[in-house]
Amino acid sequence: MPLLINREPVENDSWTLVDEDTLQQSGDIIVPLALYQENQDSLSNREGHLAVQVSGDDNIDTVLENPNQFPLIAVFFPAVRDGRGFSIARLLKRAGFTGQIRATGDVSHDRLDFMTRCGFDALEIPADRYSEEVHNAFSEFSVRYQGAEDDSRPVYRQ
């Protein structure tokens, strides 16, 4: 999947999403939150960086208590109609998370700009949805009606 970090394409990504069968893989891994919670002790002794993937179905209270224990938190969007990932990104930022927030799953062109405004700095775009047009998504709107986490463009005021 093509990856944009800070709105720029990245060729090499050191992170790998693992599941129960590949949990002991070496290197930098992203572990689904439930799997991380089940294997937290064994994962603490491994080499390489460790990150978690959360979704709207997860209770992220334990992550919010100490968000900077992870250098990266991936937020999974299961479907375009599920916007809970936007709220998760905002909650992470408000909790003081300073690492990378990565959008994964159903990441589409029409949501990219708002994702970055909510706090995402990395976007995994499915290969079948990626084109050079994706980069235009960040400048399609010149005026906003709502403020955002990192907003450098004017907000409409009456």
Rank of each mutant, 00 (worst) to 15 (best):
I5N: 04
P154W: 02
T116Q: 08
I125F: 06
V63N: 07
L33W: 14
A137V: 01
C118N: 04
G119L: 01
I30F: 08
D150G: 08
L91K: 13
P78T: 11
T22P: 03
D150S: 12
R111G: 05
T22V: 01
P32Q: 04
E38R: 15
N59E: 14
G27C: 11
F70K: 06
V54Q: 03
Q146V: 12
S55L: 08
D113H: 08
R81C: 05
R111Y: 13
F114C: 02
V31E: 04
Q53M: 14
Q53C: 10
F76W: 14
L33E: 07
G147I: 04
E47Y: 12
A122Y: 05
Q53A: 11
E140T: 09
A148R: 04
V143W: 13
Q24W: 10
T62W: 05
I88A: 02
E11H: 13
H135E: 03
S108F: 15
M115E: 00
I125N: 08
A103E: 01
P32C: 05
I73H: 04
H49S: 15
G27N: 09
S44E: 13
S55H: 11
R90T: 09
A95K: 03
L35A: 02
L123H: 04
T62D: 15
V80W: 15
F138H: 02
P126F: 10
D150R: 10
N68G: 12
L50H: 10
N6L: 08
E8R: 14
N39H: 15
V107K: 03
G147P: 08
D13Q: 07
R84V: 11
V10N: 00
A95I: 02
A74G: 04
S42P: 01
D57M: 13
G99D: 05
L3W: 03
P78S: 05
A127E: 11
D151P: 01
D21Y: 09
F86T: 01
T98H: 11
A89G: 01
S14N: 12
